[in-house]
C-alpha cells in the first residue's frame, strides 16, 4: 500500500515525464505494443501512436526497444 505522500510524488513525477518516440530510429517492430500493460501504443501505417495520458511510466517500452527509439523524458524535452 502506498502512502498518500508517495502517490503524490508519483503523480508529480508522471506530470513531468513523457514517452519520446524517435521516428528515425524506429523500425515498427511492435514489441512496445506487446509489453505495454496499459495499451498506450498502436501502430498505424508508418506511425506509432502514443496515448501519453494512459502511460504509467513503467518504462518497459524503452527497456525492450531493440533500436532505442523510445525513451522516457521530461515533457519539455519531448515537446522540443
Amino acid at each position: 500500500m502506498k502512502s498518500s505522500f508517495q502517490i503524490l510524488e508519483i503523480l508529480k513525477w508522471q506530470e513531468k515525464k513523457m514517452i519520446k518516440w524517435d521516428q528515425n530510429r524506429c523500425d515498427l517492430c511492435g514489441l512496445c505494443v506487446c509489453v505495454c500493460p496499459e495499451n498506450v501504443f498502436e501502430m498505424f501505417e508508418k506511425y506509432l501512436t502514443i496515448d501519453q495520458d494512459k502511460c504509467i511510466n513503467c518504462e518497459k517500452c524503452s527497456i525492450i526497444c531493440p533500436v532505442t527509439a523510445l525513451s522516457i523524458q521530461s515533457k519539455e524535452a519531448v515537446n522540443d
Binding site: C29, G30, V33, C34, V35, N39, E42
Partner: peptide, 16 residues
Amino acid sequence: GIESRSALDFGIDTTL
C-alpha cells in the same frame, strides 16, 4: 502478429 490488438477487442489480455 506480435503487435496484435484484435484480441484486446475480444477481452483477451495479450500483454507480455
